[in-house]
């Protein structure tokens, strides 16, 4: 990979971290409402996946979507403005944290009903297959989502129709407060794909290079031969959403995972492999912090949507009540 791309990945990971840390503070100040699910700790997953995709590859995910949003190139300004419910947000302030999308960037949304976007991903892939495009749909979802029927229906159909979907389970060890082994008959989630004869693999999601390289191979497989499932092991450093009392895990466990901070791991890798100097990486971190500050300023000074927006964008055609 080119040095510029590596450094851009580093920038993206740090930007996600800074934007979300800021979002957590803005939430405490009451400037962000609703649910706020932070991606902190999981940045390597979406960063590696998005770096590996081609422009024609679609991506779709669940409500924990700030990472993908920033990776695909939605500006920090538009992300922050959406979090603050402003007219300048990527979803015009109507979606909030859980519902970011940018169709032009082939990002088909954060979706808030657990598992519900897996059948949709099958349909996106069907669209590409039908038209003869070689695009792949990357569908990300949590470990918890593999226990709902949607997962099984979608995987099965994708195999039967050889749909070009890369199924990506982000196994962050918990669905809300429920540990994987308390909810899933197999705790090695990739094995669920065996039931549908979908080739699969589990990898370390704290290492962005591993995610990137595996995703490239998996995407090539999907393009040539149909669905593949990647289980990417990771951990959310924060609660499920804001205000999670975290009774279900102990501080030592969190601390253990935090020693494997994906940003720290990537930084060391870049230094050890002489891809960048410490000064260069420091400068990137400073830029991410400055861009976050700029995004906050932009979002805070942006206008609220006007009341007539309420009735807009509900139907494509005229809405006659």
């Amino acid at each position: 990979m080119k040095k510029e791309q590596l450094l851009d990945m580093y920038y993206q990971m740090v930007l996600i971290r800074r934007v979300e840390e800021a979002a957590a503070e803005l939430y405490q100040q009451g400037k962000i409402g609703g649910f706020l699910h932070l991606y902190i700790g999981q940045e390597a997953v979406s960063t590696g996946l998005v770096a590996a995709r081609q422009p024609q590859d679609r991506i779709i995910t669940a409500y924990r979507d700030h990472g993908v949003a920033l990776n695909v190139g939605i500006s920090a300004r538009q992300v922050m403005a959406e979090l603050l419910g402003k007219a300048t947000g990527i979803s015009k302030g109507k979606g909030g944290s859980m519902h970011m999308a940018d169709v032009e960037k082939n990002f088909w949304g954060g979706h808030a009903i657990v598992g519900a976007h897996l059948p949709i991903a099958a349909g996106l892939a069907l669209g590409d297959q039908y038209r003869g495009s070689d695009g792949v749909t990357i569908c990300m979802f949590g470990d918890g989502a593999t226990n709902i029927g949607y997962f099984h229906e979608a995987l099965n159909l994708s195999k039967v129709w050889k749909l070009p979907v890369l199924w990506v389970c982000e196994n962050n060890q918990y669905g809300m407060g429920t540990a994987v082994e308390r909810a899933s008959a197999v705790s090695e989630i990739r094995r669920k794909a065996d039931g549908y004869a979908i080739p699969n693999m589990a990898i370390d999601g704290m290492n962005v290079m591993e995610v990137y390289e595996t995703a490239q191979k998996a995407l090539a497989h999907v393009r040539a031969a149909g669905p593949f499932l990647l289980e990417i092991n990771t951990y959310r450093f924060r609660g499920h959403s804001m205000g999670d009392p975290e009774r279900y895990r102990d501080k030592e466990e969190v601390a253990r995972w935090q020693e494997n901070d994906p940003i720290g791991i990537f930084r060391r890798w870049l230094l050890e492999n002489e891809k960048a100097s410490a000064e260069t990486l420091d400068a990137i971190e400073a830029r991410a912090a400055a861009d976050t500050d700029d995004a906050i300023r932009f979002a805070e000074t942006s206008p609220e949507p006007t009341l007539d927006e309420l009735f807009k964008d509900i139907y494509v055609e005229a809405n006659h009540g």
Binding site: G33, G85, G95, G96, E304, P305, L307, I314
Partner: peptide
């Protein structure tokens, strides 16, 4: 309720 899917923005949501 107004006949719209509820938006995230608080002002719009309360208006609906």
């Amino acid at each position: 309720q107004k006949e719209v899917p509820l938006p995230y923005n608080s002002t719009l949501e309360q208006a609906a």
